[in-house]
Simulated assay, not measured.
Amino acid sequence: MTSMTEDHTLQDALGLLKDREQVARRLLESSAKHSFDPDTELDWGAPIEDGKWFWPPELVSLYDTPLWRKMPEEQRMDLARHEAASLASLGIWFEIILMQLLVRHIYDLPVTSAHVRYALTEIADECRHSMMFARMIQKGGAPTYPVARLHHNLARVLKTISTTPGSFACTLLGEEILDYMQRLTFPDERIQPLVRGVTRIHVVEEARHVRYAREELRRQMASCPRWEAELTRISAGEAARVFSIAFVNPKVYSDVGLDRREAVAQVKASAHRREVMQTGARRLTDFLDDIGLMRGVGRKLWRSSGLLA
């Protein structure tokens, strides 16, 4: 039996819901006007520019640590290049997961609905993004950085057992923090033109994906049974914990000549890095709190991830 407070919260949430088909139609209209083919939109043949970064230095994990202050500028820029490749590798892994979750979501829905058509449009976007990220890694000359085998297999479990609201919560987790960083990257004239182009495309198209996921997650949390809401709180919190660990592959440090253990320890102790990650997550955590996802064990997991202040 629900309490009066919970009843009022449910009614408030239902009152905020927008028509699912109307939202999807607007997103389809936006997709028709503002979608990009990275193969033709970006100049892949242009040479890499000397003296330009692959990632803003303030967003590099070691920025403003004692180790960073000892590193020569060339090594700092090399670390930024490898971290850009690591984040692009993470993005590909995440988008492959997202595509599978979206296919699961629409499997039982009416195939002629605008909601399903937009999901298929988003899957097409994510296919292009994954190929774009892979091509950017190759152009930058750094290796790919797959996530740890444990996290790879945890995601395999997630894709199998995730609730529908859990799928959309995890979607937002992967999209919104990277989106925050990319919004700082594409206007930054210190950054390689190709990287700026890649992040600009991703920001424009991901804005639609975030809108779709937020609207659907709000709808799901307003109507799902209590057990599903609680499972979603826990799974989203655990996903946040894993995501924060996997965000930068620690192999990047040894690949640029640093002591991996020392680098990882300094990143964990860095107040600047903690502020960057929490600022990147704040818009998301405020939204999740608003719809009732940041409670109990789930909130504790978010705190342990370092993404929640």
Rank of each mutant, 00 (worst) to 15 (best):
A84E: 11
F247T: 09
A213C: 11
P187K: 02
D64F: 10
V210R: 06
M294L: 15
V103P: 02
S89I: 05
Y253S: 10
V252D: 01
A309D: 15
S235V: 14
G292S: 09
R219W: 11
R214L: 02
L308V: 13
R303Y: 11
T199F: 00
S304I: 08
F168E: 10
R214Y: 01
L102C: 04
D43K: 12
I48N: 12
R283F: 00
Y107T: 09
L258S: 08
D37E: 12
A222V: 02
I123F: 04
W53Q: 03
D43G: 08
R282L: 15
Y107V: 09
K268F: 08
L14D: 03
W302S: 07
G292L: 10
R208Y: 06
V195W: 06
L194K: 06
L293E: 12
S89R: 09
V198N: 04
V203W: 10
A240M: 13
S130T: 12
I96E: 12
A239F: 14
T164M: 08
A142N: 04
L184F: 08
F168C: 07
V23D: 01
V147K: 08
R117V: 03
T112R: 11
H152K: 15
V204T: 14
D289V: 07
N153H: 15
T2A: 05
L62Q: 01
Q192A: 01
L308H: 10
E176Y: 01
Q22P: 02
Q182F: 13
H34F: 06
L10E: 01
R226T: 00
D289L: 11
D78N: 11
Y253C: 06
I291G: 01
P143T: 03
R295F: 01
R295Q: 14
Q100I: 03
R156Q: 13
A240E: 05
L184S: 07
Q220M: 10
R214A: 10
I48Y: 07
A124F: 05
R219T: 07
F94D: 08
A309W: 12
K251P: 01
S270G: 09
G257V: 14
A24G: 05
V242R: 15
A114Q: 07
T121P: 02
G306H: 04
R208V: 05
E175Y: 03
L293I: 12
L90Q: 04
L28E: 05
R81L: 11
A271K: 13
T164P: 06
S86R: 05
R299M: 05
W53P: 04
R260T: 15
S162W: 03
L288E: 06
